[in-house]
Computed example of a mutant assay.
Amino acid sequence: MNKFLFVDLDDTLFHSLRKCDTRDELRPIAFLKDGSANSYTNGRQRAFLAMVGQGMTLIPTTARDRDGLARVDYPFTHYRIVDFGGIILAPDGQPDPVWLARMRDDMATALPGLRQVLAVIDDYARRAGMPARARLVEDLGLPFYVNVKDPERDMARLDAIEREAVAPWLAGQGGDFCLHRNGNNLAVLPKRLNKARAVEYLQARLRDEHGEIMTFGMGDSRSDARFMAACDYAIIPNGTQLSALTVGAL
């Protein structure tokens, strides 16, 4: 039976240097556009990758876009899910045309709301004297979600943006959208954009190609739980947001 691991990347398989224990033997695995390393693996993470690489096919299931995934130094050779599930790349690197057409329709519907919440966040940040600015994240010409980070990693300022700007908008005009928050990363996504939809679509495709399959889901964030629940088994790294909300809470 073919086994597939749908796996988130950042804070699941590797970490930024700030989140690493510098006593570990760290090796760079992901890089910025200028070629400098910005994410690293420790020995346990490398051992895990070696273990699952022997018996499973890894399918990255990430918020990274195509360019960000290409700067990860790992040989992903099968399907790849990027942009929070907005794009599915086939093994040859080309976007799955059926999924792309579906997302094109969904994101055209979502675009007015994305522009609206972007303006709401920027207006609040300006009035509050905050340096944070929202941006509309796009890939393959499609708008997917609004993202905002604080350049000084001031969580209190992001908390205020979430509480005073985003939450009221979601409760009012933004009923078709949801919030993703993990540390210094705040994103507003259309509900039609989610990793679980892409995983379920790809699972059906894999069954057509391989017959009966076994699937595993792995992630660090609360937002990953939904796609992990669509798999036969779930793997949660210790010390993560999702771990604290599940096994850590018990």
Rank of each mutant, 00 (worst) to 15 (best):
R197Q: 12
E164N: 11
A47F: 03
S223L: 02
R192A: 11
L49W: 08
T61A: 12
T240N: 01
I213W: 10
K191V: 11
F76Q: 05
I81D: 04
R27Y: 07
A134D: 06
T215A: 10
F84S: 15
G53W: 12
T41A: 09
D24R: 11
F227C: 00
R153V: 13
G211H: 09
R127K: 13
R27V: 14
M56I: 06
K19C: 01
F48S: 10
A225W: 14
Q203F: 00
R157Q: 13
R44K: 14
L202P: 01
G219A: 07
R133N: 03
M1K: 10
V72H: 11
P143W: 02
E164Y: 09
R46Q: 13
N238C: 08
R181K: 15
A50L: 09
D11C: 02
P91D: 06
P75T: 09
L89G: 07
R80A: 15
T62Q: 10
K149E: 14
M218S: 00
D105P: 00
V137I: 15
E209W: 07
I88M: 11
D159T: 09
L170C: 05
P151H: 10
T77G: 07
R222W: 00
R27F: 11
V137G: 11
D92H: 11
L242T: 00
P190D: 06
A187P: 05
G248P: 05
D208K: 11
L186C: 12
T12W: 02
L136S: 13
W169Q: 01
V188T: 07
L202H: 01
A171R: 13
K33G: 03
L186N: 02
Q45F: 07
R207T: 12
D176W: 00
R207C: 14
F227A: 00
A47P: 06
I59T: 05
L245G: 00
Y145A: 06
R71P: 06
A187W: 06
T12I: 03
A230P: 03
A134F: 08
A156F: 04
W169V: 02
G85M: 09
A167Q: 14
N147P: 02
H78M: 09
R44A: 14
K195D: 01
A110E: 03
L193H: 02
G172N: 07
D11Y: 03
R80M: 14
F227P: 00
R226P: 01
D11Q: 05
A101R: 15
S223I: 08
F216C: 04
A196D: 06
K3A: 14
M1Q: 03
P112K: 05
L26E: 08
P60G: 11
D21R: 14
G86Q: 13
H210V: 08
G219D: 02
W169M: 04
M103I: 14
A230Q: 02
G248V: 02
D73T: 11
R44E: 13
Q116M: 07
A230V: 04
D10L: 04
A230H: 02
I235W: 10
I59N: 07
F48E: 06
L26A: 05
A165Q: 03
W99P: 12
R104T: 15
W169F: 14
L250F: 12
